[in-house]
């Protein structure tokens, strides 16, 4: 049981409730699973016979496909429920959806929902494992984990690094998961955005606030650049895309001016020329596609551990047929 104690619990709702050892267990397990995706036959029988429902109340391409690959490569049986096909559009409540899924005796649910707390709500009501694939503005823990894994891959450590999250922290579940995960592992975290896009009392989460991107880039070792959603312009949070790019865009000029080897992450999908310029996104500092690759490994690790897999046995589990 001591193995389970390193990542206990039925669900993965967020990184806020995890400690450093638990996060490292997931990252180390993900490290072991990376290799599966490099094989010609990308499949191991780790979750054979397990039934997983991907319940996506919000549109998602990258996260849903990443989870689906992770599940299929672990040999789970999967069903996708999208926002348009969902009975929710017919007025079914979340609690009824949960009960119906449970009645079909599923093992795990991966949920994406527009309301903060929806994953917790589901987890509290069904005995299946629940993985939060993003709930409102709350958390997106597998994204946080894959960001951290990518940073660790490239910098060899997390502790002592300075990571600045740039952009719409207010509406971002990715930002919150990054803040919790990185600070748990001993990184210093900064946030940089117009104050209209920062949540109140964000400093109380243990982060430093930068009003000028130049100061943030001078301070940071790693930049995690958030997508500026176009609805935010309609909401009046920033006056215009052009002005946003001028004040807060991650541009090559700004990177060159620091004269430092910054690592650039972006959770995608990118608005090229808004929060990040193309020559940065495609340039030598960016590790954006590594994040996508790591996403599958991280999700495999989370599903494996929640299904009761022991971290020490991840290597052996991969070899079973």
């Amino acid at each position: 049981m001591s193995e389970r104690a390193t990542f206990p619990g039925k669900d993965l709702i967020g990184l806020e409730s995890l400690d450093a050892a638990q996060i490292c267990t997931i990252l180390d397990t993900a490290e072991a699973f990376k290799e599966i995706s490099e094989r010609p036959i990308k499949k191991v029988p780790v979750l054979r016979g397990k039934t997983i429902v991907n319940l996506f109340f919000e549109a998602s391409t990258r996260t849903r496909i990443s989870f689906e690959f992770a599940e299929k490569r672990l040999s789970a049986d999967t069903v996708n429920i999208g926002s348009t096909s969902s009975s929710v559009t017919k007025g079914e409540t979340l609690v009824d959806t949960a009960r119906n899924l449970e009645a079909m005796r599923i093992d795990m649910v991966v949920i994406r929902h527009g309301s903060s707390g929806a994953a917790q709500f589901l987890a509290d009501r069904i005995p299946s494992n629940v993985v939060n694939a993003g709930d409102g503005r709350h958390e997106h823990p597998t994204q946080g984990l894959l960001d951290i894994l990518t940073i660790r891959d490239h910098r060899g450590r997390i502790e002592g690094l300075k990571v600045c999250i740039i952009g719409d922290v207010l509406h971002s579940r990715v930002a919150r998961s990054n803040i919790w995960g990185l600070t748990r592992l001993g990184a210093r975290v900064g946030v940089c955005a117009p104050r209209t896009l920062l949540p109140v009392a964000v400093e109380e989460l243990g982060v430093e606030v930068f009003d000028r991107i130049e100061d943030a880039m001078e301070w940071a070792d790693v930049l995690n650049v958030l997508r500026l959603q176009f609805e935010r312009m309609q909401g009046g949070f920033v006056p215009s895309v052009r002005e946003y790019n001028r004040l807060f865009g991650v541009t090559r000029e700004r990177i060159e001016r620091t004269g430092r080897d910054l690592l650039i992450l972006h959770p995608g999908p990118m608005n090229r020329g808004v929060e990040i310029d193309s020559d940065v996104a495609d340039g030598p500092h960016a590790v954006i596609l590594d994040q996508v690759t790591n996403g599958v490994a991280v999700r495999m690790a989370v599903l494996y551990l929640l299904a009761g897999g022991e971290p020490e046995r991840a290597e052996a589990a991969k070899r079973e047929n």
Partner: peptide, 15 residues
């Protein structure tokens, strides 16, 4: 309420 709890929970606050 708008404050650190709403920020943590990702809920829109009422100041």
């Amino acid at each position: 309420n708008e404050g650190v709890v709403s920020t943590r929970l990702g809920l829109i606050g009422i100041p």
